[in-house]
Amino acid sequence: MTFQINVAPSGHTFTCDIDDTVLAAGLHAGIGLPYGCKNGACGSCKGKVLSGSFEQKPHQARALSDAEKADGFALFCCVVPTSNLDIAVREVGGSSDYPVRKMPSRVASLTKVTQDVAILTLQLPANEALAYRAGQYIEFLLRDGKRRSYSIANAPSLDQPLELHIRHMPGGLFTEQVFSTMKERDILRFEGPHGSFFLREESHKPIILLASGTGFAPVKALVEHLQHLESPRPVTLYWGGRRPSDLYMHALCEEWAATLPHFRYVPVISDAQPDDHWSGRTGYVHAAVMQDQADLSGYQVYACGAPIMVDSARADYVGKCGLPEDEFYADAFTSEADLHQF
């Protein structure tokens, strides 16, 4: 059995099988529904069900609160329809421009830049290329049907091996392999590109890039894409970590600040120790933005990293600093632990 899904305000329609999710069916139909993790943890696919019945599959409470449910909101990555549905969601232009492909790849290099962060590069087969937007991610296809998602850290214009930044999660199905047994020339399969976190090129607004930890990966790709476009838009990157070593590409960011005419870099450390000899900004990275710019009404913000940072930034920037809600773009990283909390 299939049901019709009507999307407001665009007027787009698509069909969804009874055992499929609204998000999966919409993406398959080429509809630009917003999404991030696709597993009920990040909240990026949130929208309103205007009419119809459905089953809301398990998800994390932080992604969809009981109050939001009562107000008619749902996570479309977890919604299975039981009738025709009318839904309201802000569609993302350009998110389905490039086909999702399953591809083999070979480990070109694996470099541990800190004790718990590795930079992995992947070489695609000869005469093959992955078309993607800077900021999107791929999913590694693991045994037993499991998947793990990582943002691509370089812009497609560079024509380089795909670069991924991977933080070690002790006991993690994929990251344990990366940090213990993986070696150059190993073969990995992935699917992509995925995600609606990418630059809105039609805007001329100044940009704030907000990253924590390895959330820097897609932000790096955005900066490289802005370089490629020779964009005149002012860009400020705020990158936060607990200790200075967490800013594992600090030198590259300083180089950008020294050479790019419209670029500013603000590193922020939340738990500096005396032996770090840190003399820069301290505290929470999202709060540093508010200290520097109390009025965000004329900005776009692209935030990536820990869900608590992304959620705090969204709430404070929209609620306190006047940022239009539709100018906050986010990719909240979910860990392997997140996948087993519901």
Rank of each mutant, 00 (worst) to 15 (best):
residue 173 L to C: 02
residue 180 S to Q: 15
residue 34 P to C: 09
residue 330 A to Q: 12
residue 335 S to V: 03
residue 34 P to T: 09
residue 229 L to C: 09
residue 105 S to V: 04
residue 151 S to L: 01
residue 269 I to E: 06
residue 150 Y to F: 15
residue 4 Q to T: 06
residue 94 G to K: 06
residue 206 P to Q: 07
residue 140 F to M: 08
residue 331 D to W: 06
residue 66 D to S: 09
residue 7 V to C: 13
residue 104 P to E: 12
residue 127 N to Y: 12
residue 342 F to N: 13
residue 103 M to V: 02
residue 180 S to T: 15
residue 128 E to Y: 12
residue 250 H to C: 04
residue 286 H to Y: 15
residue 305 G to T: 00
residue 220 K to R: 15
residue 11 G to L: 05
residue 342 F to V: 01
residue 193 P to Y: 10
residue 22 V to T: 12
residue 155 A to D: 14
residue 342 F to R: 09
residue 25 A to G: 12
residue 135 G to A: 11
residue 29 A to W: 04
residue 130 L to M: 08
residue 206 P to K: 11
residue 230 E to F: 02
residue 124 L to I: 09
residue 162 L to C: 06
residue 219 V to T: 10
residue 236 T to S: 10
residue 221 A to T: 05
residue 279 S to M: 07
residue 91 E to A: 07
residue 28 H to M: 03
residue 198 F to M: 01
residue 33 L to N: 06
residue 316 D to S: 15
residue 294 A to N: 08
residue 150 Y to M: 11
residue 290 M to L: 15
residue 107 V to W: 04
residue 184 E to L: 00
residue 118 A to C: 11
residue 56 Q to V: 04
residue 54 F to L: 04
residue 297 S to H: 07
residue 11 G to F: 08
residue 320 K to A: 13
residue 85 L to W: 02
residue 58 P to L: 14
residue 57 K to R: 15
residue 74 A to L: 03
residue 89 V to I: 15
residue 3 F to W: 15
residue 183 K to R: 14
residue 25 A to M: 10
residue 202 E to K: 03
residue 74 A to R: 08
residue 113 V to G: 08
residue 105 S to Y: 04
